[in-house]
Amino acid sequence: MKLSETGILTKADLVEMGRYPSEERMKKGPVAVAECVQDIPCNPCETACPFKAIHIGENISNLPKIDVNKCNGCTTCVSACSGLAIFVLDKSYSDSYGKVTFPYEYNHSFKVDDIVKAANRGGKHVCEGKILKITNTQKADRTTVITLEVPIEYVDEVRSIYRDKQHQSSKEEIMSEKLADDVLVCRCEEITAGEIREAIRQGATDITGVKLRTRAGMGLCQGRTCEALVNQIIRQELGNSPADIGFSTPRTPQRPVTFGTLGGDLDE
C-alpha cells in the first residue's frame, strides 16, 4: 500500500528517498526528520531553524533538506511546520530507550512523567512511553510539543499518543434497495432524481431545461446546492459536457429578499 492510498508513510519510504537520518547520527544525539515528501509550496521550517540546518531554497516547493551536522535537535522546527510533519529523534539517550518529539494540537491533560500509550504513524498502539517534556511556547502559537521516552526500537515508529475510541464498524450484507429515483436532489423544491431524469427524457439537455420543467434550482438557495447534482445527472444520462449543460441564469435578487425591502426603495 502506498502513501497516496493510506496516508501512512513508512521508515522504509523515507530511507529509500534518502530522507531519514542514519543510525549513526541518531546515536550521536537528537536530530530532526522532516516526514514531508510532497512538493508543497511551504518553507516555515527553513525560516524557523536558528542553526540554518534546513534548506529549501528559492523554489518553496522544494523538499526540506536537513543538514544533520548543523542540526542539534533543538525542536524549533517541530512547531513551525504547518504540516506537523517534523519530528526529532534521539537514540543517544540510553542503550535501551530513545526519545521522540512530536507536535500535538489537541486538548489534553498530560503531565511530565505520565506513562502513555504511544502510537505509530498508523495510529496503532505500539508501546508505552513516558512523557519527558511538554512545551508550549508563545512562538509555537498553540502547537504543543511533546517529548516521549520509548524503547529504542520504537523511536522510528512512534509519532503520537494513542487515541482510545470505540469504532463500531461491522461488515454487513445490507443492500440499499431504495431506488435512486426516490432521492431528493433539489431540497428546496423537493425534486427527486427520478423527476429530473423524467425531465431529461422529455427533452431537457441543460440546467435551464431541467429547471423550467421541474423547478429544481428555483427555491430558497437558487440552485447553489443542487445545480452541480443536476449537472451530474444530465452528464450521466446524456453524456453532455459541462460547458453544454451550462448553469442557471443568475438574476436579481441573488439572495432572498423581502418585497418590503425591495419596495422600501421609494426615494429613487
Binding site: 496516508g7 501512512i8 508513510l9 510532497q38 502510537a119
Partner: peptide, 14 residues
Amino acid sequence: YAVHASKLTREGIP
C-alpha cells in the same frame, strides 16, 4: 496533501 492525511492516520483515523 499527505502531511494532512498523516496527521489523521497517526491518531488512528481510517
